[in-house]
Nucleic acid binder design. Structure first.
Length: 491
RNA sequence: GGCCCCGUCGUCUAGUCGGGCCUAGGACACCAGGUUUUCAUCCUGGCGACGGGGGUUCAAAUCCCCCCGGGGUCACCA
């Protein structure tokens, strides 16, 4: 049974990839990999108005960024193509005709106005909103006549009597009374097919065995199951994933925070962390392990470990997880990932990136353990690019410095000048300075607080001897000198 | 409102199927302490939940019923 698993992710290219969609893709991908099956990508571009090629390629790119690959779909092809829904129209229309001939579908000439009124009335009288089947009373002759007269019409699915049940892989048995299922529209007045119709056509044509999607599709499922039955086909298994919620506990929307995968990518979240965090929304590897790789996901994913309830998206935990990757990963890799952020922040040019490669590596190394996302790197390194006379002093840094006064730094300046210029190593200078502090009757903060402010303008940060190394002797001394006057005066 | 789904710390979750090993475990956040020149990291400790009420049972977070609460969905969008 697990031999021929075929699952699919079917995004519609009408916008950027939503993080909920990205998670759905990840779970589909993982299920396929876990069971040695195929992961298929199908682009649902039937909404011709809003679909664009740009969105489509951005979605594919986002999926690759997260570490997914697909066995069939755009770019890679496959035996069940085409993989763009708009190119499958002919097949859809054939199925529609077959259904109409077989009596499973019927023409409806009702106007949208009448339908709108009907719906309002039903909701007002607290009934299930559904088509009242007025047009099922039409005789074959009347239908033919109307069609010949050019009256606009849609094709509706004829929902049979009874009850529709299916077993959801995550929720267990679910059943709907067919009375609650609308005689939904398969073909619009312009002849184009609708979602619920094409999804079944394509899933069956592509031999999809498991439909893994968001819970918002749960109420679509009986419509689709009924359609499979009318087609004489066995329905696939369904697995409805819990929703990702905003802090208001409602389906995550732009109101509550960034919803597009690219928003996080642009903010410098490591892709491994995004993958990891998205999976943690609704799935647990073992209840203990928080940090895991995409390979571990592929080896361990199972429906039984997927939660039923929605999960609130917690940015704090997301940032923490991002930090696990940036702080504990290789410095070389971090440097590569950080480079574009240095450029876009306006700190360095493309040319400087390579000219000052070693220096940049040291600079990033100095902040690695205190950044979580890549965009924080230029923020924390900005002081290195300031003009010596105009280092931006943080309020707290000034407060800390003034509490200690500049006596220590003033004496230290004369002492350290020759040592900086003779290029002693940070480690040597650190030891010598500690001795100097003791010999001169100061306490560590007496020197370090004002020195930190003068050098970096910040209240916290990397070891000051590393900072001076990055700054170089000239700049270091200049900053100390400016600090001496700035910290005494007005500021 | 109809229908459907869901309900363990503030948040993500383990435990629920096959009741006892649960004085309910882990993580984020928060609080306190230690380490550090500072910040961060790291270490230690703390705070903190089975929505409510009835059953069944020697025993219930786990099984049954009712209530309450939250969400999803009701398109010629997907």
């Amino acid at each position: 049974m697990s031999e021929n698993v075929r699952v699919r992710f079917a995004p519609s290219p009408t916008g950027r990839l939503h993080i909920g969609g990205a998670r759905t893709a990840l779970f589909n991908w993982a299920y396929a990999r876990r069971h040695g099956g195929k992961f298929i990508l199908r682009v649902e571009d039937t909404d011709r108005e809003r679909s664009t090629a740009e969105f489509e390629s951005a979605i594919l790119e986002g999926m690759s960024w997260l570490g997914m690959d697909w066995d069939e779909g755009p770019v890679v092809g496959g035996d069940f193509g085409p993989y763009r829904q708009s190119e499958r129209l002919e097949a859809h229309l054939e199925v529609a005709e077959e259904l109409e001939k077989g009596g499973h579908a019927y023409r409806c000439f009702c106007t949208s106005e009448r339908l709108g009124e009907l719906r309002e009335k039903q909701i007002a009288t607290k009934q299930t909103a559904a088509y009242d089947r007025k047009c099922t009373a039409l005789t074959q002759d009347e239908v033919t006549h109307n069609l010949a007269a050019g009256l606009p019409s849609v094709l509706r699915f004829r929902v049979p009597e009874g009850e529709t049940k299916f077993t959801d892989e995550i929720r267990g048995d679910v059943s709907f009374s067919n009375k609650e299922v609308d005689d939904w529209i398969m073909l619009r007045a312009d002849g184009s097919p609708t979602y619920n119709f094409v999804v079944v056509c394509d899933d069956s044509a592509m031999k999809i065995t498991h439909v893994i999607r968001g819970e918002e599709h749960l109420t679509n499922t009986p419509k689709q199951v009924l359609l499979y039955r009318a087609l004489g086909l066995e329905a696939p298994s369904f697995a409805h994933l819990p929703l990702i919620l905003g802090t208001d506990k409602k389906k995550l929307s732009k109101r509550t925070g960034d919803t597009a995968l690219d928003d996080y990518r642009e903010r410098g979240f490591p892709p491994e962390a995004v993958m990891n965090f998205l999976c943690l929304q609704g799935w647990a590897l073992d209840g203990e392990t928080e940090v895991f790789s995409i390979d571990q996901l592929a080896k361990n994913f199972a429906f039984s470990a997927v939660s039923k309830g929605g999960s609130v998206f917690d940015l704090q935990k997301f940032l923490w997880l991002a930090g696990e990757y940036t702080q504990k990963g290789e410095l070389e890799a971090l440097v590569e990932r950080a480079k574009p952020f240095m450029v876009s922040a306006g700190l360095m040019t493309q040319a400087e990136l390579s000219e000052r490669g070693e220096w940049l590596k040291a600079a990033i190394g100095s902040v690695q353990e205190r950044v979580r996302i890549y965009s924080e790197i230029p923020e924390q390194l900005a002081y290195l690019f300031a003009t010596d006379a105009e280092v931006v002093y943080d309020e707290k840094a000034v407060k800390n410095a003034k509490k200690r006064g500049v006596d220590a730094m003033s004496n230290y300046f004369e002492w350290v000048r020759p040592r900086l210029e003779s290029s002693s190593t940070p480690a040597e200078l650190r030891e010598e300075t500690r001795t100097w502090i003791g010999e001169n009757g100061f306490k560590f903060p007496d020197l370090f607080q004002p020195l930190r402010c003068a050098l970096t303008g910040a209240a916290g940060g990397p070891d000051l001897f590393d900072v001076m190394e990055l700054l170089g002797p000239e700049s270091s001394l200049a900053r100390i000198q400016h600090g001496l006057s700035r910290l005494v005066d007005s500021e």
